[in-house]
Design a binder for these strands. Structure first.
Lengths: 344, 344
DNA sequence: ATGAAAGCGCTAACAA
DNA sequence: TTGTTAGCGCTTTCAT
């Protein structure tokens, strides 16, 4: 294992000062004679010089990495968001420091702190925590934060929002338009603002149609910890099973996300219920998989990849001292596929 | 925005030397009187002291981050591997620097270099490149590398292998046992060793059964770039379409991975072909989704999460100066679900 | 038990 | 155009 060569080594070999070497190797605009420049570049190449960003960073207080904290990348929705962020970051020579909070607020805080210790200056955060103590402290110390997916109600935190309520409303309205009156809502715990909003949309759509919300048709699961993705699916199955305890099945199911909808469909199919002939199903998110199943899932599109890109752009704006940014609210879109039939 | 407080600030306030402050705040084992220790801890707390890891790292040449390079986390197989690595890393207070090479060898090299510049000392790599120039250089400079998924034939690179050939053999043999004789193989380009090996297994199983490999039943797609996950699915669809040009359909399809198998199933269903009654399908990987579809997919299990954990452990061993590590070959397992029927 | 001082690799005034 | 020097925040020998 060869010793690492530094700017000083190159300087010594070239018989010049480290400053000159720094100027050429860091692509500074500072003037250096072209002979010198060539010589140094050649020497650097020959000696396998690779810059040490830690030294540079300590001096300049700048770095090229941003943090991203999401519940888990095993959820295709988040992996798509992350890919969007990373794509933009790459183009601008930034790095992404990815953290999976795994439904654990403590984990979220630990990552936040670690990120900050590592001098990360900007973070895109899908927060599952309610305690804003640490976040507030870090923001005071200069951390820039963009909230996605879950709102964060703090001064100086800007948001890429999504109109979950409207999405919930649209999905329900669509089912209503197809003639359905008994529409079940199946969801993971309403402990996240996004889910609560989807439920609000469901409720409002029913009420606007003059239909009372039947409590037995609203199925909320118990909170769980760990990797959520498998959980959402299992959840969908579990809550669907409860439907069969009812005197009469609903004619349609609206699930709080696609993973849950997959569970619903799976369980329904296991019970011999045909989709959409005997039961209509609508999901939420429009993950790639939703169109890969048979029949392909009708769902509400949430532009995850674009969300990632937007989040990156807003973060850069913020970090570049841009100010008075405005929150963005992305609009839902209904994707009609094949899991909904007209109620006969 | 408050100015960041350093150990010097704390030292000044406490009226002691920075050395003493460092000793207590970095949890050094060096003796410090308990009065002093308490005072410093209190002051640090009061003044919101947060250590600067960059300074520390420059001095100690140690850091707590490892790199992980995979084709894309939007592929559930890789996201599961990454989660396994991250889980272990977290337990040991390590960080994961995640990079998606997106099927692009140049991107892979860029990330490798960036990682190294940032003083990352260990990397878990699923390489899609064939050019080992940079990697060889970095290894000479002390980088430790664990290869997963795709073998890397370099001195000092240790591997978590998977017996792809055996997996391919098992899947084909299983189909053979069920009475199938005309078994199509559908795959993305054989430019990765893993896929080639799966094909070898397919071929060998047929040959051992005294069945000639029919060229028209082996469908290989053209190379593509970009985010592969959607591509694999589309690929499965595309190649399945070609099957219908044949004089006679095969009775079973073996796909090189589950995403492709989903595409196969999707296209088959679109053509009104019932699975498994009219066509049997076997996948490869056993991603979570493979059991979420209807009917659930029969497939070859590749232990992605465990692979991640193993990779982390091996890497730590290597980085800790452990030597004479031995490559590991994980064994495939057939998961019988519902997409295969006995050939009548 | 505490402090002084050097230095990790790099950059950036300032000087020459 | 090039060099000198100081120092980013931290740890760590060596002294005291």
């Amino acid at each position: 294992m060869k010793k690492r060569v530094t700017i000083h080594d190159i300087a010594r070999i070239a018989g010049v000062s480290p400053a000159t070497v720094s100027r050429v190797l860091s692509k500074s605009s500072y003037p250096v004679s072209s002979d010198m420049r060539k010589k140094i570049e050649r020497l650097a190449e020959e000696h396998d010089y690779i810059p040490n960003m830690v030294g540079k960073q300590l001096k300049t207080h700048k770095n090229m990495t941003i943090g991203v904290i999401v519940p888990t990348i095993s959820n295709p929705f988040y992996s798509s968001v992350v890919l969007g962020i990373e794509e933009m970051a790459r183009r601008n020579n930034y790095h992404v420091f990815l953290c999976n909070s795994l439904q654990n607020p403590k984990q979220e805080d630990e990552y936040l702190e670690k990120l900050f210790e590592n001098q990360v200056k900007g973070v895109v955060l899908s927060s599952i925590s309610f305690n804003r103590a640490l976040l507030t402290r870090l923001i005071k110390l200069g951390l820039k934060v963009i909230a996605i997916d879950q709102p964060i109600d703090l001064q100086d935190v800007f948001q890429i929002k999504f109109d979950y309520r409207k999405g919930g409303y649209m999905a329900t309205q669509y089912l209503l338009d197809k003639g359905h009156r008994r529409i079940a809502f199946i969801t993971a715990p309403l402990d996240r603002p996004s889910r609560q909003s989807i439920f609000d949309g469901y409720r409002d759509a029913l009420q606007d149609a003059g239909i009372a919300v039947e409590e037995r048709l609203v199925n909320v699961s118990e909170p769980a910890e760990g990797d959520e993705t498998r959980g959402e699916f299992e959840n969908g199955k579990l809550l669907t099973r409860r439907l069969f305890d009812l005197d009469e099945l609903p004619t349609a199911v609206f699930a709080c996300n696609d993973m849950t909808a997959l569970g619903v469909i799976n369980e329904l199919t296991a019970h011999g219920v045909k989709i959409p002939e005997q039961m209509s199903v609508v999901g939420f998110d429009n993950i790639d998989f939703s169109q890969m199943i048979a029949p392909p899932l009708t769902t509400i599109h949430q532009p995850s990849y674009e969300m990632g890109k937007l989040a990156y752009n807003m973060l850069m704006e913020l970090m570049g001292g841009g100010q008075a940014e405005i929150d963005i609210v992305l609009q839902p879109k209904l994707i009609e596929r094949s899991t909904v039939a007209v109620k006969k």
